[in-house]
C-alpha cells in the first residue's frame, strides 16, 4: 500500500479525520414528471433516484407476478457513461453486478415499506448514478429513502446506509472514498434503520468487501452505525426543510 490511510497527524488522504463524513447535499422533488424524486451528493458520488407509483401493475409485471395480489416493487439501477474516473465506459445493461445491487435494494426497501398497504399495486424505483467516488450503494440507498418519502410511500423508518473501513493499525475509518477503497482496507457497507419507535437500531443490509479479523468487527460495525445515525440527521433535516418549503409555497399560493 503506497499511501497511508491515516497520517501521523490523524488526517486522512483527503483531509478528513477518522470519524468524519464527507460532504452530503440532498434535495427532494427534483424531477417533475414522477411521483417522487431525490438528488443526493455524497462526497463526489452523485445519484438521482425517482419513484413512479404506487400504480396499477403493468401487464408485464402482473404476468411475472402470475396474477397474484402481492405488492410489486421494481428496482432499476443505471451507471452513467461518464460516471467513473477516466474514460467513458460502455454501459452494460443487466450485468451481474447491477443485478445484485438491484436485488439487494429490493430486499432492503421491502423490509421498511409497509407492504400490506400496497397490495395489488406496483412501485418502480429508478436510480441513475451520475458520478462515482466510493460508497455508491450507500448513496443509492439514502437517495432512494428520500425519493420514497418524497413520493409519500409509507415506511417504518428512514433507512440510512454508510460505509466504514479499517487502517493497517486497526483504526476504523468512517465513510470510505474511492481512493481509500482502492488503497486496500476492507470496506463494510451497512444499511440500518436507526431508530424505530422505542426499538433499538436494526440492520437491514451488511456487505463486506474483504477478509479481516473478527476482533475488529465490532469496532468497524460501530463506526458504520454511527455514520448511519449522522446521515439520518442530515436526511431528516432535508426532509423537514423540504416539507416546510412545500407548506410555505402552498400557503403563499393560496
Amino acid at each position: 500500500m503506497a499511501q497511508e490511510l491515516l497520517s501521523l497527524q490523524g488526517l486522512r488522504i483527503d483531509g478528513r479525520r477518522q470519524n468524519e463524513l464527507r460532504q452530503i447535499q440532498c434535495r427532494l422533488g427534483v424531477l417533475e414528471r414522477c411521483d417522487g424524486s431525490a438528488y443526493m451528493l455524497h462526497g463526489n458520488t452523485k445519484v438521482i433516484a425517482s419513484i413512479s407509483g404506487p400504480k396499477h401493475p403493468t401487464k408485464n409485471s402482473a404476468n411475472k407476478n402470475r396474477g397474484g395480489d402481492e405488492f410489486i416493487f421494481n428496482v432499476r439501477v443505471k451507471f452513467a457513461t461518464f460516471s467513473k474516473n477516466g474514460e467513458r465506459q460502455k454501459v452494460v445493461k443487466n450485468s451481474k453486478k447491477l443485478g445484485e445491487i438491484e436485488i439487494n435494494l429490493k430486499n432492503i426497501f421491502k423490509s421498511v415499506i409497509l407492504v400490506e398497504k400496497y397490495e395489488k399495486s406496483q412501485l418502480d424505483l429508478n436510480i441513475e448514478i451520475l458520478q462515482t467516488d466510493g460508497s455508491e450503494i450507500c448513496t443509492v440507498v439514502n437517495a432512494a429513502t428520500l425519493a420514497l418519502i418524497d413520493a409519500g410511500i409509507c415506511m417504518k423508518e428512514y433507512i440510512c446506509a454508510c460505509t466504514a473501513s479499517l487502517t493497517n493499525d486497526g483504526v476504523a475509518l468512517l465513510d470510505v472514498s474511492h481512493l481509500e477503497e482502492i488503497c486496500g482496507g476492507p470496506t463494510l457497507t451497512i444499511a440500518a434503520l436507526p431508530r424505530t419507535g422505542d426499538h433499538e437500531q436494526s440492520v437491514a443490509y451488511v456487505e463486506l468487501s474483504q477478509k479481516f479479523y473478527l476482533k475488529d468487527l465490532n469496532k468497524i460495525f460501530d463506526c458504520a452505525l454511527m455514520g448511519c445515525e449522522k446521515i439520518r440527521g442530515i436526511l431528516d433535516e432535508a426532509i423537514r426543510s423540504n416539507a416546510f418549503e412545500l407548506v410555505n409555497s402552498e400557503l403563499t399560493n393560496n
Binding site: 483527503d14 483531509g15 478528513r16 464527507r22 460532504q23 462526497g43 463526489n44 474516473n85 477516466g86 474514460e87 467516488d133 472514498s177 481512493l179
Partner: peptide, 11 residues
C-alpha cells in the same frame, strides 16, 4: 491516456 481525476480535498 490522459485521465481526469477528481478528488476531494478538505480544508
Amino acid at each position: 491516456n490522459v485521465l481526469k481525476i477528481i478528488r476531494e480535498h478538505y480544508l
